[in-house]
Design a binder for these strands. Structure first.
Length: 300
DNA sequence: TGCCAGGCCCTCTTTAGGGCCTT
């Protein structure tokens, strides 16, 4: 009986969200005792999603969504939605059993070669949001950059070198970790770009990637789930910008370039997990450990 | 705009070639 009620609850939930066209702010669903708990992937992101004018109905307004008319198309911010308040209230009471911390990552580098190029920028965001949910730092690559202005920016006093940035990164990730449960680092094309850079940098300065750290490539995920779901994207249209456009997401500008992409990927990840009905457990199953890169490195 | 590296995927072919995707 409990399962039947949960099924009906879920069906009604999806139906409600589909009707309102606001399915972005609550993604990870799980049955908790006899209740359906809504897990938002993000709470304080500045990302908004464009909605067609006809979708603004009294129902949405009555639900107290934050609507701003900034241009021809109204925008709906998700940060004041009820599921989020529910999540925050539950989190404060520490009653939600989250299987993992999901962190969206983007790196800036001096080039594309993880063996020879250096990291210049690290941006990470905890999709659950809350206080101190963002980590951002420039990194002094200790090499001369081609762009003179960028070179000055990255070599200013106070910009940490990678060996100084790693301990800060570790401390921040640890602060986001929930009782030693896994951390899933998500990056677009991370398997071929961000993750090899990160793992190599850790090894270079004598740090080990913790076994609880898992890696998930959102490019690979997008190519899989957007096909499985029937909402096919044409081959060659899985760039982050393409996904932002596909999901009709508006990303606010920021001086921190990598953080702009992180914000965008947070929203894209929400959409993908929603349309594909993926849970945290599903993401864990699709993720892999750093040993995948360590093996590659040792075989060189 | 294209180059850079490299893993994955698709297509066309059976072992190879080319495009995608990231800074």
């Amino acid at each position: 009986m409990k399962h039947i009620m949960s099924f009906i609850f879920l069906r009604n939930f999806y139906h409600l969200r589909n009707c309102l066209l606001i399915g972005a702010n609550s993604r990870l669903l799980r049955i908790h005792s006899n209740r359906c708990i809504v897990f938002p992937l993000r709470t304080y992101s500045n990302v908004t999603r464009r909605l067609p004018l006809r979708s603004i109905t009294p129902h949405i307004i009555n639900l107290q969504f934050n609507i701003s008319i900034a241009s021809k198309e109204p925008k709906i911010s998700y940060q004041y939605s009820d599921p989020i308040k529910l999540y925050q209230a539950q989190k404060e009471r520490d009653t939600i059993d989250q299987p993992a911390t999901i962190l969206v990552l983007d790196l800036g580098t001096t080039g594309l070669n993880s063996k020879t190029d250096k990291i210049t920028e690290i941006a990470i965001r905890d999709v659950q949001g809350g206080m101190d949910s963002k980590f951002y730092t420039l990194v002094n690559p200790e090499v001369t950059l081609k762009n003179h202005k960028r070179n000055e920016l990255h070599t200013e006093s106070g910009v940490p070198r990678m060996e100084e940035a790693i301990p800060r990164l570790l401390k921040w990730v640890e602060s986001r970790q929930i009782n030693g449960k896994p951390v899933i680092l998500v990056a677009h094309n991370g398997h071929c770009f961000d993750f090899p850079f990160l793992v190599r940098a850790f090894h270079e300065y004598g740090y080990q990637i913790h076994e609880n750290w898992l890696f998930l490539d959102s490019l690979h995920l997008a190519r899989q789930v957007l096909h499985d779901n029937g909402t096919k994207l044409k081959r060659g249209n899985h760039k982050l910008k393409d996904l932002v456009k596909f999901f009709n997401i508006v990303v606010e500008a920021s001086a921190q370039k990598a953080m702009v992409d992180v914000n965008a990927l947070c929203a894209v990840l929400q959409q993908m997990t929603f349309v594909s009905k993926l849970t945290s457990a599903d993401l864990i199953e699709r993720a892999y450990t750093a040993s995948r890169y360590s093996t590659r490195r040792s075989s060189e």
